[in-house]
Write a protein that binds this DNA or RNA. Structure first.
Lengths: 207, 207
DNA sequence: TGGTTAGGGTACGATATCGTACCGTAATTG
DNA sequence: CAATTACGGTACGATATCGTACCCTAACCA
């Protein structure tokens, strides 16, 4: 029963969660610099004593938010390795990837990382390692396996994976990041389908 | 002789330029929020009166810097339309594009845009329109022309252009933006060459 | 039931930053 | 040469922000 939360502990964790969600909105909408602890406070309600009891200072609060969102969002990048056809698997990975990268939280996270990478290098490293690079490596591993089984010639799986992910991002990610125009699921499927087609033609050139 | 600068005007424009270059370094290294006018001042030397005589306030100074750098950097994206072979032209455009996008100033500009897009939407619009989107459109136009002349079947030149640019950016741009690891010219050429190869195979599938 | 704990409300100190004001100097121009 | 102009130095006002301190209430636990 060690997981049973006492009433106190429950209260505490709820407060902590409330602070995190309120602060997350502010940090993502206004950025680190323009978000003030006083505004966080008025958003979540309560006293400064409580806020600083949960989070030592502004940086700690920011890091906690980024870590939380990063873990949750990047977890969604983990590909489902079902035994499908090559092209379908590619498409699934592409759709999943682009959906995450252009989701509201994905964009907010990316923006925060780009903006604050220089001042929070550990967060940026974690993001890129567990985010785009991990997805790319998963794909590369899959390509390595497939290029042994199937009649594919993929000279450099890592580079091929980066190419595919790049095609999938295309201009959609740029646009989403810079103008907040997030693509619909329809658009995502169209983009990914085209990327898969091009990729397959590029790979199976010499069968 | 209307372009002849008087001594006064020359002095003035030199001071303005000095402020811009000094402030540019700070804004790009520290970001908008963490850059203070006092630090700009101590970097460029001189008095506040002079600083504010040239730039009404911090936002105006920031916009002036971004506009200046944006114009200069994005101008380098203009493709040289020499009459080369299809693949060579693609490679030239790709190398030029990736070099600009991963140059020190290109990265700094991109970071600033992503970080401040929400608060300076006009700057972000200008950046994306005259930057990545313009390069993509140039390529699309070129593809349209070529697909009429050569034996190419490019169903959607705009999408194909976005795919090519995406492949060229690949992971290199992500890495450069998030960890300041800028690729060497060698790496750039390798990446672009691979992208061109894949692109050609993807396009000339059904000759 | 009495003690402990989480939290609320608010005032406050220290600092920092934006932008202005004031005064003096050097250079340029008519 | 006198007047205008750009500039340098610095003090200052207004505001804002981080984080702390103090006092009080309500919930919870033994």
């Amino acid at each position: 029963m060690e997981n049973a939360l006492s009433s106190r502990e429950k209260r505490q964790s709820e407060k902590r969660a409330a602070i995190l969600t309120a602060a997350k909105t502010l940090f993502f909408e206004e950025g680190y610099g323009r978000t003030t602890m006083d505004r966080v406070l008025s958003a979540v309600g309560g006293s400064k004593r409580t806020l600083y009891a949960h989070f030592e200072n502004k940086e700690v609060l920011f890091k906690a938010i980024i870590s939380q969102v990063s873990d949750r969002v990047l977890y969604a990048l983990t590909p489902q390795v079902e035994s499908k056809e090559f092209g379908d698997t590619l498409a699934d990975m592409g759709v999943r990837y682009l959906q995450v990268m252009t989701s509201t939280e994905g964009i907010a996270l990316y923006r925060a990382m780009v903006a604050e990478a220089a001042h929070f290098p550990d967060l940026a490293d974690n993001f890129i390692q567990n985010g785009p690079c991990r997805a790319s490596k998963h794909l590369a591993d899959y390509l390595r396996v497939q290029s042994a089984h199937e009649n594919l010639h993929i000279a450099d799986p890592d580079l091929a994976a980066a190419q595919f992910m790049g095609m999938v991002r295309g201009n959609a990610h740029l646009l989403a990041v810079l103008t907040a125009q997030i693509p619909s699921d329809e658009e995502i499927r169209t983009i990914v389908k085209a990327a898969v087609d091009s990729f397959l033609r590029g790979c199976i050139a010499h069968h």
